[in-house]
Write a protein that binds this DNA or RNA. Structure first.
Lengths: 334, 334
DNA sequence: TTGAGTATAGCAAACGTTTTCGCAAATGTC
DNA sequence: GACATTTGCGAAAACGTTTGCTATACTCAA
C-alpha cells in the first residue's frame, strides 16, 4: 500500500494532474503549489511508480545486458563499463548471463522484450545471431553488440579487432623466433575465437608457415585450457609457444605445461588475449593482447542510450577498438 | 507499435478478456478458442507487455541485486548464484554496483523501489545499514542481505561467519608457529572486514598474544593491499605472516612482499580470505579460507523468492555458512 | 416445459501514471 | 472598461493488462 499521486492529490486538495505536473516541474504550475506538493510528497514518503509511468511513456529507463559468463573476469569489466555509464545517465541494467547457451539467450531476449527494456547490449554466445536479429528486426528496441562484429551491415557494435588480436599475438611470437606455435581455442562456434584463430593463421602464413597443429577447441574456461594442453602435449611434436584464445585459457595452458614438467617461458612460451586483471599479477605476468574492456562497455552504453534518445536515426554505429600488445614474462625469444 | 492483446482480440473476433484468459490457460475458455487464440498470438508475434501486467498484478518478476564491486571476483560468483537461481524460477535480476559508495547505494535503493522490484538482495557497502532499513521498513518489499549479518534481528541474511573466517585463518597461522602476524584490511567501515579482524584478534588473544601491528585499512583492491604492505614493511618489525582481509588484498600483499625482496612463504607467509577462483591457480596457490560464494547467491535468491511468494510470513531467515580452510602454498610453518 | 446447473465469453473497472484539451481567473493593453 | 492574453489548474483519456461480475446458450433432470 504505498502512497500514490492520488493520495497526495487528496492531501493537497488538488487534482492528481496537478501533482504529476508539480513533481515534474511543469511550468504551468505555480512555484507555491509546487513547493507545497513536493513537501507533501516527501513527507508522505512518495516514490513514483515507474511501472505506471513506463506504461504511458513507453520508456523503462532500463537496458538489458546479455553476456555469456559473469565468472570470466573479462565480462565483469565490460559490465562495469555499461553499468556505470548507465547509472550516470539514469538507466539501470538488467543482467542476463547465458552460460554460452543459445536457448538461454533466446529466452532472455524474449524476456527483455516483454520487460520493455529500452535497449539491449549483447555479447552473443555463438556466431549465429539470426535469432537475435529476428527477435528485434521489428526494431523499435535498439541493440548493440559487444565483443562481436556482426556480418550484417545494419548492426551496431563495439568490439576490438579480434583478427588483429590473433595476428598481433602470433606475430609477436614469430618475431621472438618461434615457429612451432599452437593455438588453444575456446568455444568452436564463437565468432571472436574464430577471428582470433584467423589472425593466428594469417600471421603464420605471412611468415610462410602452415598450420602445424590442428586447432583445438573447448570452452572459455581455465579447465578447458588445461585439458586441451594436456592433450596437445601427448604428442611428440611439442610447440615452443602456445597462443591461447583468451587469458583464462592461457592460465590453464600454463598450469598444464608446468605440470608436464616444462617451464614457462623457458621451454614453452604462452600468450593470452584479453588482459584480464590478474594477468598483470607478478606471479603470473602473462604476456597478452589487451582489450579496452571497460571502455567497450562504456561505449556500448553510450551508443545504446544515444540510440534510445533518437529512435528515428537507424544508422548503425560501429566501433572497432584497437588491441594493444602487453609484453610481460610468459614469452621468451628463441 | 507492437501487437497487443487487443489486436489479437480484434483478429479473433473475441473480447480481449477472452484473449487474456486464453493465453493464461484459464479453465473458462474452451480448448478450441484457446488453440485458435494461441496460434493467432504466435503468428502475429505477440509478446505480453509485462509492464502493463505488473501494474495490475503488482509483481515485476525481477529482483534487485546490489553489490559493491563486480570487478572483485568474489561478487560475480555470488551474482552468478542468484542469477541462475532466479532464471530458473522465472525472475530476472537488476544489477546495481555501488562502488562502495553509500550515496550510490541509496540512489539504487530508491530506484529499485520505484521500479517495483519484487525483492532485493544486497551486499551493503558499509556497516551502517540504517538507510536500507528505513527505505524498506514499510516493508512490502523483502530484502535479504548477503555477505553481511545485520545486528537487527528482523533482517534476513545469508553470510559466512566472518568472525570465524578471521579466527580460522589466524589460528592456522598460529599453529604453524607464527607469532608476529599482521592484518591488512579493506574498507574500515566494512562490517565483514571488522568481523574478520575481530576473529583475528580473538585468535591472537587465545594464544595470549596482543595486537602487535596496528590494523591497516584501505580498500578491497589489490592495489590497496600492495600499498598497505609497502607501508607495513617500512618498519623494522617485519611480521612472519600477514593475514589479508580478502584474497584480492592478499594478491597485493604478495606482490609487495616479493618486491621488497622477501619470499612468500619462505620469509613471510600470506593468507587470504574468500578463495576466489584464481587463488587456486598453481602459480599463486594462495592459502585462504573459502566462502561458498555461488551458494551464498543461490540461497539468497531462494530465500527472497520464497519470501516473495509468501508475503504474510515476515519471520526473518538467517543462514550463516561455514568457512573452510584451504591450505595451499603461501604459508609455511616456522 | 420449466428450472437449475454448467460451460463460455463479454463488460467494465482497476492498476498509477502522463498528457491533451479546456476553462476560469488573473493580468495586461489600449 | 472592454478585450486579449497569460497563468494555474482540473477532467478525462490513454497505456496494456487482469479479473470480478454478468450474460448468454446450452444440457439435463424433474
Amino acid at each position: 500500500m504505498s502512497v500514490t499521486i492520488k493520495d497526495i492529490a487528496k492531501a493537497a486538495n488538488v487534482s492528481y494532474a496537478t501533482v504529476s505536473r508539480a513533481l515534474s516541474d511543469h511550468p504551468d504550475i505555480s512555484e507555491e503549489t509546487k513547493k507545497k506538493i513536493k513537501k507533501l510528497a516527501k513527507d508522505m514518503g512518495y516514490t513514483p511508480n515507474i511501472i505506471a509511468r513506463s506504461l504511458i511513456t513507453k520508456a523503462t529507463k532500463t537496458i538489458g545486458l546479455i553476456i555469456p559468463d559473469i565468472t570470466n573476469p573479462f565480462f565483469p569489466e565490460v559490465a562495469q563499463g555499461v553499468e556505470s555509464y548507465a547509472y550516470d545517465n539514469g538507466y539501470t541494467v538488467l543482467l542476463c548471463t547465458t552460460n554460452w547457451q543459445i536457448d538461454r539467450e533466446k529466452r532472455y531476449l524474449k524476456a527483455l522484450r516483454s520487460k520493455m527494456v529500452d535497449g539491449i547490449i549483447i555479447a552473443p554466445a555463438i556466431d549465429d545471431i539470426s535469432h537475435i536479429i529476428s527477435n528485434f528486426n521489428g526494431g523499435d528496441t535498439p541493440v548493440v553488440f559487444v565483443t562481436y562484429s556482426p556480418d550484417d551491415p545494419d548492426c551496431s557494435f563495439v568490439a576490438t579487432d579480434d583478427y588483429k588480436c590473433g595476428f598481433m599475438a602470433t606475430e609477436y611470437l614469430l618475431k621472438l623466433g618461434h615457429r612451432n606455435i599452437a593455438y588453444i581455442g575456446g568455444l568452436e562456434n564463437s565468432s571472436s575465437d574464430r577471428r582470433r584463430f584467423e589472425g593466428y593463421r594469417e600471421a603464420l602464413k605471412s611468415y610462410g608457415l602452415q598450420l602445424r597443429y590442428s586447432p583445438m577447441h573447448g570452452q572459455f574456461k581455465q579447465m578447458s585450457g588445461y585439458e586441451l594442453t594436456k592433450e596437445l602435449l601427448i604428442y611428440n611434436d611439442i610447440p615452443t609457444a602456445i597462443l591461447a584464445g583468451n587469458d583464462v585459457l592461457a592460465l590453464g595452458v600454463i598450469q598444464a605445461v608446468e605440470e608436464f614438467g616444462l617451464k614457462v617461458p623457458d621451454s614453452v612460451s604462452v600468450m593470452g588475449i584479453d588482459d584480464i586483471s590478474f594477468a598483470s599479477f607478478d606471479k603470473i605476468s602473462l604476456t597478452t593482447v589487451a582489450q579496452p574492456k571497460v571502455k567497450i562497455g562504456q561505449l556500448a552504453a553510450e551508443i545504446i542510450i544515444q540510440k534510445i534518445n533518437s529512435p528515428q536515426d537507424k544508422t548503425p554505429v560501429k566501433k572497432v577498438l584497437e588491441p594493444r600488445l602487453i609484453i610481460r614474462r610468459t614469452c621468451r625469444s628463441i
